[in-house]
Design a protein around this nucleic acid. Structure first.
Length: 897
RNA sequence: GGGUGGUUAGCUCAGCGGUAGAGCGCUGUCCUCACACGACAGAUGUCACAGGUUCAAAUCCUGUACCACCCACCA
């Protein structure tokens, strides 16, 4: 005999292994079948997977397995992402623990070390995906990496093409600079946080001594780089002062007062100091007025190009010093408390310094337009649909994308410079390495993936590669086609592209999804997928975002160890309802674990009656009421589940099967089958049970792959037509049913439940058999009950069920009403008459208020005139039923006295 | 400042025009020969608030409050 409780560990290990060994998840282009393709959002090689990955990959796995079982050529393409800054940060942390920096290693050594880390971490991630049951073929030959050779070729081709088309450019622009990471970032990699700060009001005096203008600022230290003060041209307070010169405090510079529409009249004093080099709005205003761009904050976050007193100070220290000096000079008009949002690096949470820098950019407007159109036309369709609007709106406001990063780990920008031809455009660090490139200062680009053998202009051989790398999302954006070998024209690309559905959390909708859509249209001529399944973020049980600092991070593998993969998957799935964020609680997994155990025990139950030596159970299926009923319920569950899958409502699809298995198959059908398994019907009943249960296992397989495979493999030997791996079986068809048995069964279930209520309320011991009478004026109902008497006897533990039209109520009997029947349960000892009276009176009250409600509606002329006939009939029927119930209850109560 | 979503049983959430549901938790009985990771039974809701549409509103519309998230050049 198998153990009472299911032990997922050995089972999961066995199947995970077998599936991979058998290459069960591999796919090859098969033109006779329709492909169903999902490319995995490649996890960053920054460490172990978190619970969000578990959810994301479970959803994909369900879709893939389901599609495969529905006859599609399903392919889930595995891979990992090199993860640019994020990975570099992990490496730097490792080095820090050794007391080193990446500069101690040097670029080449650092990259070598990161590749070694890729081998280690990438392997860990794949192992985790494997344990999660993911139907990914994890053979080396099939796993992609965003920085492997084919993907590098794709990156180069995309860069080359867009450069030649003029879509990629390099110039000076305002960018977000993370002083800790030491690199430029794109706009979406910046997060904002409210911070309590101060608003300083500073007086700028006119050069001619005719007064002053007061500006308000949250960043007084940047005044050292001011090139103007701006006011709104409509602002009457400053009419006539435009063009006047102001003395810039703490310096000997003189700056103009300019008029610009970008200035809000209502903010502060209506006058703004303009620091074109360190503020996006100021930069724009500066461009409009040809103001000098004076950089006073260095890439290291230190003050430069300013009076010696401040030079070299950190931004914070400079702020303090500037405020003190202004105050001492009497130029600080006031200081107020102020809350504003500051920008933080999304990777390291350090302060972001907006500054002007020469970087590589991608022009986005032209790429965005067709992507917006694709979303509008639903060539790319969102599930849930509510994501369409934010998606198109974001694309509508898109800014050019800064793609260069001043880090080491990533795709090196495929551009080379000839030392002889680029001259001052090449800047070198103290080690003699090319550190920065400036087109403005004369650098001449040569686009090439590998080092060009000679300079196309002068023929020289001293060419150096651009020191920057590309934003990691640049390669991610190409993922849906780079995985198939693009730009090579491969069979795979031809067959699998465009892919079917992309499954992702909403947090990378813009960062990644939008860029994939744009890139797909740009390079492949059509969007990379037709559907986007957007899910929420897994949070802790209080709804807080999981983070290491809060200490509320849940490791999915710890949960898997404790409860099993199927349990984790089941509970994550159950909670994704609505596509919103998911509060994760460990208690929730227990529910999943219990369900897995339920499945296991249902199988164990069947096994008890099946022969030791496996042989197909070939008996004809039985056809009594319970059999027809359970078949109808099974068909209904499959229909519901299939319909839910069609609209990507995965949790609903799972829930329909869960309800069928637990509430119907186990709680009713198996119970009803027990005595029959001892009698002549045994084989027939087993045949049906096997058919329905193994069918349910197939249907559940996409959700809970391990336990279903295990149970199916042990039961299939009894099937007339045993299948192979569940993944290769067809997802079950609902048998044709007329639904007739469901109503009849419901009537019996009502009688059984009422008798159980009597047993429970009058504390009749569970083991004790009772006598019962069922009385009704409804002759067909009596016949039906007679036919189903065995079920009632069995499930309500009745030893003698008398059914008739005019049976008298025995003395000392408890009454109950179930549908058309008055039920009487004679009691052995004394009956608590008061309790019985209260019970009946309560029933009567309920029936009366129900009846009143019906009568009221039936007496409402407006209702009668306007409500649909079906509704009126329903109320009429209910009213009649209530009426009958009231008179029956009244009679019972009268008898009770 | 703009936008989106939410407000239903103690908790997490379904339901989205016709008598309020599930899971967990809670209470009672039972270790009934598949499962105590179980069975059976039970309690618990002015469906945020205010208007409106409708014969009928948790469900549709409008507004309010609170919560959450996203976006924005909040000097």
């Amino acid at each position: 005999m198998l153990s009472k409780a299911y032990d997922p560990k050995p089972v999961e290990a066995k199947w995970a292994d077998t599936w991979q060994k058998e290459r069960l998840f591999i796919s090859t282009p098969s033109p006779d079948k329709k492909p169903f393709v999902v490319v995995i959002p490649p996890p960053n090689i920054t460490g172990a997977l978190h619970i969000g990955h578990a959810l994301n990959n479970t959803l994909q796995d369900v879709l893939i397995r389901y599609a495969r079982m529905m006859g599609r050529e399903a392919y889930w393409v595995p891979g990992t992402d090199h993860g640019g800054i994020a990975t570099q940060n992990v490496m730097e942390k490792q080095l820090k623990a050794e007391g080193k920096t990446r500069h101690d290693l040097g670029r080449e050594e650092f990259i070598k070390r990161t590749w070694a880390w890729y081998e280690e971490c990438g392997g860990t991630i794949l192992g985790q995906l494997r344990r999660l049951g993911c139907a990914l073929d994890l053979d080396k030959s099939n796993v992609r990496f965003t920085m492997d050779k084919p993907r590098a070729a794709a990156v180069f081709e995309a860069f080359r093409y867009m450069w030649e088309k003029g879509q990629i450019y390099r110039r000076e622009r305002m960018i977000n600079w993370c002083t800790r990471c030491g690199t430029a970032l794109s706009d979406i990699e910046v997060e904002y946080e409210d911070e309590k700060s101060k608003l300083w009001h500073i007086k700028y005096a006119f050069e001619d001594g005719t007064g002053s203008v007061t500006v308000a600022t949250t960043r007084p230290e940047t005044m050292l780089g001011d090139s103007a003060v701006a006011v709104n041209p409509e602002d009457t307070r400053y009419k006539g002062l435009h063009g006047k010169k102001l003395k810039l405090p703490l310096t000997d510079r003189v700056i103009p007062l300019v008029a610009d529409e970008g200035v809000e009249k209502d903010f502060g004093t209506g006058a703004v100091k303009i620091t074109p080099a360190h503020d996006p709005l100021d930069f724009e205003i500066g461009e409009r007025h040809s103001l000098e761009v004076l950089r006073v904050i260095s890439y290291e976050g230190k003050m430069v190009n300013c009076p010696a007193k401040y030079a070299g100070l950190s931004v914070q220290a400079a702020r303090k010093a500037v405020v003190e000096d202004l105050s001492a000079a009497g130029l600080l008009e006031k200081e107020e408390h102020y809350k504003h949002s500051v920008s933080k690096c999304s990777r390291c949470s350090s302060h972001i310094e907006p500054l002007v820098s020469e970087q590589w950019f991608v022009k986005m407007k032209d790429m965005a337009a067709p992507a917006i159109a694709a979303a509008e036309k639903e060539d790319v369709k969102f599930y849930p649909a509510s994501w369409k609007k934010p998606f198109t709106q974001w694309l509508g406001k898109i800014q050019d994308w800064c793609i260069s990063r001043q880090i080491w780990w990533g795709h090196r920008i495929p551009v080379w410079y000839c030392r002889a031809c680029s001259g001052a455009g090449m800047k070198f660090d103290d080690k003699g390495e090319l550190s920065r490139v400036s087109f403005e200062d004369g650098a001449l680009p040569v686009i090439s993936q590998d080092k060009p053998s000679s300079c196309p202009k002068c023929g020289g051989h001293d060419l150096l590669q651009d020191p920057d790398v590309l934003d990691t999302w640049f390669s991610s954006a190409l993922w849906p086609f780079s995985v198939f070998g693009w730009p090579e024209k491969t069979k795979e690309l031809d067959y699998y592209y465009p892919t079917s559905v992309l499954v992702t959390g909403y947090e990378i909708l813009y960062l990644w999804v939008a860029r994939m859509v744009m890139s797909g249209i740009e390079h492949m001529g059509r969007p990379p997928f037709s559907q986007v399944y957007v899910h929420g973020i897994v949070r802790d049980k209080h709804g807080k975002k999981m983070s290491k600092s809060l200490g509320n991070v849940v490791d999915p593998l710890v949960m898997v160890d404790k409860y099993g993969t199927d349990a984790l998957r089941f509970s994550l799935m159950a909670q994704t309802m609505g596509g919103r964020d998911i509060p994760f609680s460990e208690e929730g997994i227990v529910g999943g674990r219990n369900f897995v155990n339920k499945l296991y025990n249902a199988a164990r139950f069947m096994q008890m009656y099946l022969p030791e030596t496996p042989a197909p159970v070939t008996a004809a299926k039985p056809a009594e009421l319970a059999d027809r009923w359970i078949t109808e319920r099974y068909a209904e569950a499959l229909r519901k589940s299939r319909a839910a899958m069609a609209e990507y409502d995965l949790p609903k699809a799972q829930d329909a099967l869960y309800g069928f298995i637990w509430d119907e198959f186990c709680d009713w059908y198996l119970e009803l089958a027990k005595p029959r398994l001892q009698g002549p019907d045994k084989d027939k009943v087993l045949a049906l049970m096997l058919e329905l249960f193994t069918g349910a296992l197939k249907a559940l397989h996409p959700f809970m792959p391990y336990v279903t495979e295990e149970l199916y493999s042990s039961l299939k030997v009894y099937l007339p037509k045993p299948g192979g791996y569940l993944l290769n079986e067809a997802w079950p068809e609902a048998p044709a049913t007329d639904g007739a048995a469901t109503a009849a069964m419901q009537e019996l279930m009502g009688v059984i439940t009422q008798l159980r209520v009597v047993r429970s309320q009058f504390e009749i011991p569970p083991g004790k058999l009772i006598k019962a009478l069922a009385v009704s004026g409804d002759a067909p109902a009596l016949d039906r009950l007679k036919a189903g008497a065995a079920y009632v006897s069995l499930l309500a533990k009745v030893e003698d069920l008398a059914v008739g039209r005019d049976l008298p109520k025995p003395p000392r009997a408890i009454s109950a009403i179930a549908g058309a029947f008055n039920l009487y349960v004679p009691m052995d000892g004394t009956v608590d008459l008061e309790k019985e009276k209260v019970r009946m009176a309560k029933e009567l009250d309920k029936a009366r208020s129900d009846s009143d409600q019906c009568r009221q509606r039936l007496g409402d002329a407006a209702f009668m005139a306007r409500a649909p006939k079906a509704e009126i009939d329903k109320i009429k029927a209910r009213s009649e039923e209530c009426g009958g119930k009231i008179s029956r209850l009244t009679a019972i109560l009268e008898e009770l006295g």
